[in-house]
Amino acid sequence: MQTTRKTFRENMKALEKELICESEMVSVAIDRSVNALKDLDVEKAKKVVNDDININKKRWEIEEQCINLLATQQPVATDLRELIAVLSISTDLERMGDHAEGIAKIAIMHGNKPLIKPLTDVFRMAEKSTDMLTKSLEAFVNRDAEAAKAICGEDDEVDKLYDQVYRELLSFMIEDPKTITRATYLLWAAHNLERIADRVTNICERIVFLVTGTMEEIKTSNY
């Protein structure tokens, strides 16, 4: 069957590329912010804070293009769901960028005081979250609802790690109240990473909606 909506399809392809670009910017921001905290590198952290403006700009650009396409092309059915998915995923990505910026600000506040513990689990949380993010964008490009559902299941690992970090930091604080400030910083950083993984599950739910047309909350376990 011949496609008569060449312009719309081309615009959607371009939008998809922009979305992937935004997700890569977010992955870099997460990686840099956690490294800035690990290396106690205030300059690196400041760069993450400054670069967040670019993620925000990218999101506005995507939103503007979505609005233009809605107004001028009036998409329906799958085309409409695709456009809504891009709009929604872009917003989630922008918020994930804010969480990375949050970690960078914590690194700035932490300054060059020594870390109360190595960031092993926090690092694993960051790795897992960015891996989930990359896979979710792959699932979006491939319109793969099953893969999206499976990624949601991986959020449990991040939640478990967060729980572990939380309990560990709590014990530090109880043992030595002088560590409270630094432990709280690390707890906030871990919390930001836990929220990032949660936002990946939002993206996955949007992919399922795009493919099936049904909005559902994907709950894979009771963790």
């Binding site: 069957m1 909506r5 998409p75 329906v76 059915a77 799958t78 085309d79 409409l80 769901r81 047309g213 049904t214």
Partner: peptide
């Protein structure tokens, strides 16, 4: 208009 059942409908309205 958001989730047609038939592929033919989807192709036409899109």
């Amino acid at each position: 208009f958001t989730k047609p059942k038939e592929k033919l409908t989807e192709d036409y309205i899109s």
